[in-house]
Simulated assay, not measured.
Amino acid sequence: MKLFRDHLDRELQIPTFPQRIVSICPAITETLFALNVQDQVVGRTKYCIFPKHQVEALPSVGGTKDVSIEKVRALKPDLILAEKEENTKETVELLSEIAPVVVFEVQTIEDSYRLIRDLGAVSGAQPAATKLEQEARMSFDSLPKVSGQPSVLYMIWRKPYMAVGDTTYIQATLKALGFQNAAKPLDGRYPEITPELLEELKPDYLLLASEPFPFAEKHKQEFAEFTSTSKPVLVDGEMFWYGAKMTEAAHYFKKLFENNESFIIDNDTVKKVR
C-alpha cells in the first residue's frame, strides 16, 4: 500500500499496483485505456463508451449519478476512481466502504494535465502518463483560435435550456479557443437560459453540443425562433472532454472552424496545428 493525496486533498491508502479498478467517470475510463492499463479495469459506467468497442466487454455499474453499490461490490475492486462533478458525494461515501475511492476534480486545462499524471501514479503507469500528458500539451498548445473574441453560449440541455458557466473545464477550453463565454457571469456552473435571457445576452454563437443532450440539425431552427443574432453551430461535445480526448482536440477544432465560414480564424494559430 502507499499514501496518495487526491484532488479533494484527502490522504488515502491505496494499493501500490491495483489489479481491480472500477472507474465511474467516462473521461477517466478512456484515459486509463490510453495508459494501456485496461487489464486492471474491471468495471465502468454505462456512459463510459470510449474507446469504442474496447470498453463493451467491461461490466457496467450503472450511471455516473446512480452507481449501483452492489454491482461495484460484486466486482471486488481494490481501487475506485471518481470525479467530483460527475459523481455524487453520497456515492463516494458509500463506495469508500468497499475500497479506497480517489476523487479527481477537473475545472481547468492544468487540472486535466494533473489528472493524467495522477492516473499514471495510481495505476502504476507513470511513463505512459508522461507521454500522454506531452501529447495533450502539444495538442492544446496548437489549438486554433477564432479572431476577435466572439461571445458564445455552449448549450448542453433542452427543457430547460442550460449552458455551461464558469469554473468548468468546457469554459477553460472555450477561452483557449478564443471565445468569450456569455454565461460566465451568470450564477451557477450550468445556468438555465430562457429565451428572454438569450435575447438579452445576444451571443455571437450558440454551440449546440452533441451530449449530454443530443442537439441536432433540427434544433437550429428552434433557436432561430428566439434570436436572429446568434449563429447556431453543432459541436461534438465529446471533444470537450478532459484526459485522453485532449490529444484529438486541435485537429477537430481546426476542421470545425474551416467547415463553418461564419468563424473568422486567426490563421497563424491554424498553421500551428500538428
Rank of each mutant, 00 (worst) to 15 (best):
L35M: 04
D39V: 05
Q40N: 04
V41M: 14
V42Y: 09
G43K: 09
G43D: 11
T45G: 04
T45R: 08
Y47P: 05
Y47D: 08
P51T: 02
P51H: 07
K52F: 08
H53P: 02
L58M: 11
P59K: 14
P59W: 04
S60K: 07
V61L: 05
G63K: 02
D66E: 14
V67N: 00
V67A: 05
S68R: 03
S68E: 03
S68P: 03
S68H: 01
E70S: 04
K71I: 00
A74R: 12
L75T: 15
K76E: 13
D78E: 09
L81V: 10
E83S: 13
E83C: 09
K84L: 10
N87E: 11
K89M: 03
T91G: 05
E93R: 14
E93Y: 08
L94I: 03
L94Q: 15
L95Q: 06
L95Y: 12
L95G: 08
E97V: 09
I98C: 10
I98A: 13
P100N: 01
E105S: 15
E105F: 09
T108G: 03
E110L: 07
E110H: 11
D111H: 10
D111R: 11
S112K: 07
I116C: 06
I116V: 13
R117H: 11
L119C: 08
G120M: 11
A121P: 02
V122W: 01
S123D: 01
G124A: 02
A125N: 05
A125G: 05
Q126T: 13
Q126Y: 02
